[in-house]
């Protein structure tokens, strides 16, 4: 008899506690959502405002914090696109593209080769060489930049895209090598051994077996390189001097310097265009970004 009552009490107690716990969970969830929405809003509002403001008239831009323009105008886009140089922004986008495409292809090929070597072969000095990947990863660019500049000057490469292409085409972005090595090490090598048994040489194995398996990581590499190159400012600033070779980032800086002080909407409109390629690519392929960054980081 006594036994039954105590167990009854216990279940009563349990349900009360469960209820309280459920209430707490609901409360916690609500707080979390509120916080996330608030932070998200504060984070993204500047971007939303930027898009709205690019359609505003110059007098309206600094008159309110609202997003919607009262008298929407394409003035900023039309006049901003023309720029104060003999070229339009079309030219600068084309230049950015000309910088990015060879750089991305070169990065993908050279980094895959390096990762293949590190993950699948044994060779003399392997430890030292892999150590150098980590060293480059941590080495501040600032310390190599000046001699690099002098080297490119002596080679006659200044004011061309070569200084922007060549280091990357020689697997200079250690982050990508590291990322691909980590990814490749986590993949089993039985398929490659099977191919080897069937008489494929190492290059065939790389092209037909390893590259398809590496594809998700390789896509991440290409996307990151695209994004970083699109945003890169210091490289073009140092190496490019003629306006007809300027990429978007430099052209934007140029328009800040040359546009009259009150023509804000032109600069804002061109800023919107400048970030759109990166945004479009990001939203189209966000999975690869998130995976790339978490796998590259977590194993480090």
């Amino acid at each position: 008899m006594t036994d039954i009552t105590t167990s009854n009490d216990l279940t009563m107690d349990e349900t009360a506690r469960a209820k309280r716990r459920a209430g707490l969970r609901l409360f916690s969830t609500a707080i979390r959502y509120a916080l996330l929405f608030l932070v998200g809003f504060v984070m993204l509002y500047p971007l939303i405002w930027l898009v709205g403001a690019s359609f505003k008239t110059n007098s309206e831009i600094f008159s309110g914090a609202g997003f919607l323009p009262q008298n929407p105008t394409l003035d900023g886009y039309i006049k901003g696109w023309q720029t104060s140089t003999p070229y339009t922004f079309g030219r600068f986008f084309w230049n950015s593209f000309l910088i990015i495409l060879p750089k991305v292809i070169g990065t993908a090929i050279s980094c895959t080769m390096a990762a293949y070597a590190f993950a699948r072969f044994d060779f003399p000095l392997k430890k030292v060489l892999f150590g150098s990947v980590i060293a480059i990863l941590l080495l501040p660019n600032v310390v190599t930049r000046i001699p690099q500049y002098i080297l490119f000057r002596d080679l006659g490469w200044l004011d061309s895209f070569l200084p922007l292409w060549v280091p990357s085409a020689l697997a200079g972005d250690a982050f990508f090598v590291f990322m691909l090595v980590q990814f490749l090490r986590s993949l089993p090598s039985d398929m490659e051994e099977a191919a080897r048994v069937d008489g494929a040489n190492s290059l065939q194995t790389l092209v037909y077996i390893v590259v398809p398996m590496l594809a998700p990581a390789l896509i991440s590499v290409c996307l990151f390189q695209f994004m970083w190159t699109m945003n890169d400012f210091l490289g073009p600033l140092i190496y490019l001097s003629s306006v007809d070779k300027y990429p978007v980032s430099l052209a934007l800086k140029l328009s800040i310097d040359t546009t009259e002080a009150f023509e804000w909407n032109r600069i804002l409109a061109m800023s919107v265009l400048a970030i759109s390629p990166a945004l479009i690519v990001f939203f189209a392929a966000q999975r690869y970004f998130i995976e790339g960054i978490s796998s590259g980081g977590i194993k480090g």
């Binding site: 050279s110 390096a114 070597a117 072969f121 060779f123 280091p167 020689l170 697997a171 090598v177």
Partner: peptide, 15 residues
């Protein structure tokens, strides 16, 4: 392995 690492090694030295 060193062959596949060739581009990286050149880049490492030169740049």
């Amino acid at each position: 392995g060193l062959g596949y690492l060739g581009p990286y090694i050149i880049g490492l030295l030169v740049f």
